[in-house]
């Protein structure tokens, strides 16, 4: 955002601004630009899915695309969990679609409309934390529900030598407990870093073009612009990869809970 001195703050894009004040039991649940984009993402997913709901025997293009996505998640679940994975398809599908659409929604050139700014919901720790807790909570609930206390045998892998029994469960427990944090932080950091990088490069381009010295524009603005095209494409790739990684890791974690190694 251009301030008074032409300074561009790459962090301003993450600012949450309340659009309508709301209050629930003393908690501030204002409708913000973040909430707005969550709804936009939800609406976009709904439109995408509704377009493929004709349920024809011979699918059209749109239905083919929707069936491709559901088939992709179905395959992922059955290959990492097995036949029991079908039960968890709705959860992983929702996680995958929300992250994918939120990531892409943040990349949309909404900024060309004056006054409007794209907001990347998944660049917020609070959002990724909720997603990670949903993923991790499912693993805990499913594991304890299916196996009871036997679930904790997850921390003693097969073939652990007896003289390492004091150490391996500790390490396993640690790696298990760190899962929600790694899930949440990976997505948050990837999206934040990508958007900051793009914004910084965009600042180089704009400030370079506005610079008084004429040599700055071709020497700084042009290479930055070219670099930015590449970074943007890379960022689009990262958007898809992060959604895939989150869904894949969730399916693997659920596999742990369902099949106990």
């Amino acid at each position: 955002m251009a301030g008074e001195s032409g300074k561009i703050d790459p962090m301003h894009q993450f600012q949450i601004e309340p659009l309508a004040k709301l209050d629930l039991f003393g908690y501030d649940i204002s409708f913000t630009n973040s909430s707005l984009f969550m709804l936009v993402v939800l609406g976009a997913i709904w439109v995408f899915m509704a377009g493929g709901m004709k349920r024809e025997l011979v699918p059209g293009r749109w239905q083919m695309a929707v069936e491709g996505v559901t088939g992709f998640i179905n395959n992922m679940m059955s290959s990492s969990i097995g036949p029991e994975g079908k039960k968890y398809v709705p959860l992983v599908f929702s996680l995958f679609m929300f992250i994918l659409f939120a990531n892409f929604m943040g990349m949309m050139p909404i900024g060309i409309v004056p006054g409007a700014h794209a907001f990347t919901v998944t660049s917020h720790l609070t959002v990724t934390a909720v997603l990670a807790v949903l993923s991790f909570g499912t693993v805990l609930v499913v594991g304890l529900w299916k196996h009871g206390l036997h679930f904790f045998s997850l921390f003693v892998p097969h073939g652990t030598p007896w003289w390492l029994l004091w150490l391996i469960p500790l390490i396993e427990l640690f790696s298990f407990l760190i899962r929600p944090f790694s899930l949440a932080l990976r997505l948050f950091v990837a999206m934040t870093a990508g958007h900051v990088l793009m914004k910084v490069l965009a600042g180089f381009v704009i400030n370079g073009l506005n610079a008084e010295a004429l040599w700055v524009a071709p020497l700084v603005a042009l290479p930055s612009f070219i670099l930015m095209i590449g970074i943007t494409l890379l960022e689009l790739l990262v958007c898809a990869i992060q959604a895939y990684v989150f869904a894949l890791l969730t399916s693997l974690y659920i596999n742990d809970a369902v099949n106990l190694h």
Partner: peptide, 22 residues
């Protein structure tokens, strides 16, 4: 300042997404 709003809307949106679409 924002965690309550973020959690609330995220859970709401994800709940709709999970039950209606998922």
């Amino acid at each position: 300042e924002t965690y309550a709003s973020q959690f609330f809307w995220m859970l709401l949106v994800f709940g709709i997404l999970y039950f209606v679409i998922g």
